[in-house]
Amino acid sequence: MSAVAVRDLDLDLDSFEGPFDLLLTLVLKDELELADVEVAGVVAAFVERLAERASPDLEACGEFLVLMAALLELKARGLFPDEDELAFDDLDPEEAAGELAERLALYRRFKAAAAWLEERLAAESDRYFRLGPAPLAPVPERPLAPQDPVALASALRQLAADPPAPSLSHLELRFPPVSLFLDRFRAVLSRRRQFVFDREVDSLSRVEQAVAFLALLELRKVGEIKLGQPAPFEPITVWSAS
């Protein structure tokens, strides 16, 4: 299939019957409402013609795609007349047809320019020349502005000084010693036979409460106290084992 065959593509649509280039012309002359044309039908006809060939003609496909893209854009503009975009509002069918023709003409010019380049390249195929990186040029000197030696020494001294150690205090967890709570609980039990653990540590931080609980377990391990809890998560009561 050649590029000419794209324009000669026979169409048998509900709204149009004839060659593709006639359809294009009628649309350009605004004698055929593009909104009524089944673009999918045009594509189907082209694909059928393409399938008849052993190998696809990429040039024909390219031209067809460009034409269909332009037609689809025109059709979209016709189907959505209330589109907010100013460019669409201002575009009447005549302008749209003109724009389509301009785009096609512009593309054809560059296609022709590409063909000229291809011919030129073929004509110059017997021109051989050296290719490579640019030769090394002398590196230009970059003189420094006048500097004060005292200011330079001062800057170097500042750079040479050890920077202050960063503070990590906000990252540290402060654990009180377990012995602190061992002594505290022993003192409480020497005054009272029992106490409620939760009340005793209520005013402490979570870390201190955890250490206090370790002290409690330690006292239980050595048999100095007895523990009681009516149910899980209920207050823990502590008795002196003696």
Partner: peptide, 11 residues
């Protein structure tokens, strides 16, 4: 312009 026809010519 010398390489291909313009939009008016195409139309």
């Amino acid at each position: 312009d010398d390489l291909a026809e313009g939009s008016e010519e195409l139309r």
